[in-house]
């Protein structure tokens, strides 16, 4: 069984997000980069499914050489090999088209992505890959099991879950619950240095959309503190001032 896991290089979750003076680009100074947390979950599940010689796990990412340390972290966690498509990722469509171009002749049984990246939050790559590769896709999976060639997947829905059954090959976007991210051990970190990381040239793809500016949320006014001995005043304020109840 061949599994492909798509990973994205994103700012650490504790990062304070700021922008350039013209608000056109993200300020990268002092930012630590990590594997997108949802992609780490995807990778952990892939490694579990492939464990004991049942399959191989390849990670793929679209980015310039600066993301190699993030890819090495995925190799340290246990992936067998890695592919980097050498281009600055413009948007989800660009990334998905690059990955689809690579994956179309490779015979992967399962392609996993995180449900969304925590920087641009598109939640698009799994579904676009499904469309481009003519495969079924599930965008927000909470659980993935595989028996022979049949996947059983729990999908998040409003107020509940759906249990789906589908054949491989398929593309699935993973959410919390699928697995717990694996922390690389020393042996993994050492072996990651020599695992294959193939760099491929990117396809030319024209963009259909562009982020033209960023804004940071307006700060809220000062908090109004209510005396803990007079809780009903909070109810009054929510009714008469905030008008939310």
């Amino acid at each position: 069984m061949k599994i492909l896991v798509c990973i994205s290089n994103v700012p650490d979750t504790t990062s304070k997000i700021t922008f350039s003076a013209d608000n056109r680009s993200f300020n990268q100074t002092g930012i630590q980069y990590i594997i997108n947390p949802y992609d780490e979950i995807a990778l952990a599940r892939a490694l579990d499914l492939a464990e004991g010689g049942k399959g191989t796990v390849t990670v793929i990412s679209v980015g310039e050489a600066s993301i190699d340390p993030t890819i090495r972290k995925a190799l340290a966690a246990g992936a067998d090999d890695a592919v980097r498509i050498d281009a600055a990722p413009k948007d989800a469509r660009f990334v998905a088209k690059q990955i689809a171009h690579y994956a179309k002749d490779q015979g992967y049984d399962l392609i996993l992505t995180g449900r969304e990246s925590i920087d641009y939050n598109g939640a698009q790559v799994a579904a676009i890959l499904g469309e481009l590769l003519a495969l079924p896709s599930i965008s927000i999976a909470k659980k993935i099991d595989l028996t022979d060639n049949t996947l059983t997947v729990e999908r998040e829905i409003e107020g509940g879950k759906e249990v789906l059954s589908l054949p491989t090959p398929a593309v699935i976007g993973t959410a919390e619950g699928v697995a717990i991210a694996k922390i690389p051990n020393m042996r993994g970190i050492m072996s990651a240095r020599t695992k294959p990381l193939t760099v491929l040239a990117a396809e030319e793809i024209s963009s259909l959309s562009e982020i033209i500016a960023y804004e940071t949320p307006a700060p809220r006014g000062k908090v109004t503190l209510v005396d803990p001995g007079n809780v009903s005043q909070l109810v009054d304020l929510l009714h008469t001032q905030a008008k939310v109840i």
Binding site: I17, F19, I118, N121, L208, E210, I211, I212, E215, P217
Partner: peptide, 18 residues
């Protein structure tokens, strides 16, 4: 259009050009 970015730590103005 405006959308949230960086998991709601910011907003992005996204221009659709197709």
């Amino acid at each position: 259009l405006t959308k949230s970015a960086f998991s709601a730590k910011a907003f992005a103005k996204l221009s659709l050009q197709a």
